[in-house]
Nucleic acid binder design. Sequence first.
DNA 1: TAGATTGTTAATCGATTAACAATC
DNA 2: TAGATTGTTAATCGATTAACAATC
Lengths: 209, 209
Amino acid sequence: MVSKSPPPDIVIGRLPIYLRALEALSAEAQEITSSYELGERLGISSAQIRKDLSHFGDFGKQGTGYEISFLIEQLRQILKLKERWVVVVVGAGHVGQALVNYRGFNEHGFDIVGIFDKDPVKVGKPINGLVIRDDQELPAVLNEYRVRIAMIATPAVAAQEITDVLVNCGVKAILSYAPTMLSVPADVRVQYIDPVASLQHMTYYLNRD
Amino acid sequence: MVSKSPPPDIVIGRLPIYLRALEALSAEAQEITSSYELGERLGISSAQIRKDLSHFGDFGKQGTGYEISFLIEQLRQILKLKERWVVVVVGAGHVGQALVNYRGFNEHGFDIVGIFDKDPVKVGKPINGLVIRDDQELPAVLNEYRVRIAMIATPAVAAQEITDVLVNCGVKAILSYAPTMLSVPADVRVQYIDPVASLQHMTYYLNRD
DNA sequence: TAGATTGTTAATCGATTAACAATC
DNA sequence: TAGATTGTTAATCGATTAACAATC
């Protein structure tokens, strides 16, 4: 266990992947695994897995490997997943609605407590137990639930304005589906999901037949 | 212009981001930009932008900068975006349906020619001009259109099986929304979109209040 | 010309891998 | 004990940044 500089962000980003693989192994009723086996599954070297984990503690046993249930709990603790988090969705187009309907968030501890849109035609429509609310109600809901996490599914032009509202009301983590870069203070994290950019990344390698 | 080893994949991944920013500038009727201005917009150093572009050619002019429309065309050529690409979607749950409804793909040269599901209840349902077809028709459609790009929006358990079918029928690029790692031959590219993992990455940095 | 900005080199920084003593 | 696998160190590899001559 090293304890100097903070763990690199790129390492933090891999922990959810490790967690997911461990949960899959656990679901197969396996109890012990090794950095080698995990690496095989994920296409990552065993050395990297051991090094990544070593930033946070000594979780394995020489000659044996890692107890899966124990390592799962450790990773959940490191990633602050032992509590549930409330989340809002801004933008109630097809993407926003798909997010509200997706069961994976709830299954992994994220509770969507509101979905918002500025279009009066959409406001009032029920989706999976929620009702689309007007953007103007956003601050009230953010404050009421002490929301720290938001997902943005608006058009690109609206995203920065919404971001400013979110940041003003204490949101510290934003997952954005809007195809534009957001400006936020240093203490706010942003992750982007951009399927078009992902496709464009891959077309580079395609050969025209 | 350097011309040795192939450009790093991480550089390729930034090109779509540069392209998007340039298109935004172009939409604002701006004609010239600099690596500094672009970097400001994207939160990337100007040196990195110049270095990235230098892998592919000399696109700028000393003292002036880059002609936006010219650089856009160069990037579109590098990324093979001068032609349109056909794409299929496998899995017609909320995510798959949102993908078919999303206008961004068509606007950026990707034509979704089919959406598939194995659930007989869903098969036959129309979505945005397409009709959900049975998974079993997948090979015929892949061959008919010579599809090279697929998006997977199935549950995790079905994703590998679908991947094998796709790869067998000549698909070379897969964008997967299924929360599992896929095994593919070396000549097939895979990109993953995992909103839960993205949220879990950010919760690490959140403080419980 | 004077000012601005490129493309490139070299230096720096950071991440990954290989190797192995420690030890279960 | 013999075999296996960890955690860690050092070496390697790769990416980013700083700096500047070239030049528009």
